[in-house]
Design a protein around this nucleic acid. Sequence first.
DNA 1: ACGGCAAATAACCGATCGCTTAGGCGTGCC
DNA 2: GGCACGCCTAAGCGATCGGTTATTTGCCGT
Lengths: 315, 315
Amino acid sequence: MTLTQLSAFVLVARLGSVKAAASALGVSEPAVSQALASLRKYLDDPLLTRSGGGMAMTPGGSRLLTIAAQMVSLGAEAESAVRSAQGAAEQLRLVAPSTIVEFVAGPLADAFTARSAGSIEVSAGVSATAEMAVLVSQRLADVALGPYLGADRSLGLVSEPIFRCRLVVLAAPDARLRGAPPQWPWLVEPGATDPGSDVSRLLRALGVPESRLSVFPNQTAAWEAAGRGGGVAPGIAHLAVHRLRRRELQVVDVPGTPMELCWHATTPPVDRRSVAAASMRHFLGTPEAMKLLRSPGAGVPPSRFRPPVYVTIWS
Amino acid sequence: MTLTQLSAFVLVARLGSVKAAASALGVSEPAVSQALASLRKYLDDPLLTRSGGGMAMTPGGSRLLTIAAQMVSLGAEAESAVRSAQGAAEQLRLVAPSTIVEFVAGPLADAFTARSAGSIEVSAGVSATAEMAVLVSQRLADVALGPYLGADRSLGLVSEPIFRCRLVVLAAPDARLRGAPPQWPWLVEPGATDPGSDVSRLLRALGVPESRLSVFPNQTAAWEAAGRGGGVAPGIAHLAVHRLRRRELQVVDVPGTPMELCWHATTPPVDRRSVAAASMRHFLGTPEAMKLLRSPGAGVPPSRFRPPVYVTIWS
DNA sequence: ACGGCAAATAACCGATCGCTTAGGCGTGCC
DNA sequence: GGCACGCCTAAGCGATCGGTTATTTGCCGT
């Protein structure tokens, strides 16, 4: 199974004709036919069969098409990605839960880039808790900032405490909350739907049903809505400090809160760290980074954060 | 650039050593080293360089890793997908906007499967409007049900009207709506964030800012919240018929509504259609299908609607 | 300076890829 | 029936892949 075989197959499936695919590829028609034959033999499935005017896909063929199409386009992407990276800045990929990305990843990235004199380019991505550890261990991310990830010893990761904070529940000072917490309207950011997140843990502990959740595009929007009296919004206390000080929000007394949290920095073990990762890990221990973690950006998060995740339909 | 080269690279990057990768693959160390050399030459980038203890990735290498890891695992997935499809049921992939998937795709799929005596297996997927046309034209989906997609003639798709309906704005009968529509709280389902959707078009026409949107996990949850007086919720009129009849919701008079819509069925041209697609297209014209489109499921959609969109990080 | 270790290179070989030209065969159409 | 069209197979050929053993290079610690 080679990439040329797969791309021949994809092209035939799309164009519905071996001949058309051949001319599109600029090769003779038997070349394509044979690529197809090799694939058929290798996978032991006809994939495409002659039927009436064009070619019909077998069940196996249609399943293959979705996957092969991705592989082919990834192949092209790989080439251009590497070629365009020639001599480019080293990149450091940071993964974190959405709230951290929203509030502190930006300033942190800026400060770190400045510190490295621009030679390291930081990109921050959102990830579910369950995926963070494996992303780092598979070297698809360099540093994870968020919950403790050292539990799975087999991954061989180093997860060190960095910063302590508290998860609280916030609402407008004049909010009238009727009934018990499970009945309140809960205004959350998308990360709350990650079952491994602290917010999700809190909601489960309280027995808040899913139907009581309103998911906002980000934490800021959820707090905004809570400030207008739309309900309660869980959040990291110190990130809401401006809203608390301006009395737009206040802390609601809820069982299980404040929940004491500790953010960890997770990296590969020292000898397997990239220079960028080692440098970032060191930076996270400095007072400068600590200060950035403590003060929530300018309070104005990027309105639309797009995580660098590949989305595929029907995988 | 071959798949074996890529998997050798991925393994070396992950394990941090050529030797380890070789033993993991069960081949000699020069075999891996040479695969790496070929890749380096082909891509004209060192990818991995020796550096104390292990191997350090170049910028190009780290970019390649994310892509190559996917390609490798897709390759394995392709094999197993095709092999396990041997003699399996033919599958028909239907794409539609989230609302349609939520309310009518299920019953439609069931009825169609029953009609085909189980020989065709329907899976429904959510897609953004902009993607629906390419999914069908690329044969990654068989039928699209939703907006008219025939505008781009170059894709060579057939988009035929199937069903007429109306988009209206709903709220609780006792709702007190203050100010103009842009000030109201708008309770929407995720599809409303697709700029090509009808709901999004309506919101733009009214000038509703993003900050006024609360995104609920599905249309049912949004209507539920609207019924409790949380705001207004746009939606397809006939899908809310039960709630309207029970007076949980009522239609709000908003400029630009009711918006007359027409759902279309989009397929490849007749001669390029799979049997399953042709069969589904025919089914969509029958009174049976019409009835299913007209009546929203059993009125009780699945409480947790999970759109079958796979987000793949490396797999 | 000198071992020791791991990666790179060299030289070699069989298998397969990817392409060609030439010809056989099934299907649909007149 | 015959014909045209398009797919498949056959045969052949050069390039490269993927693997081996043997050797060289480069880095590190003592």
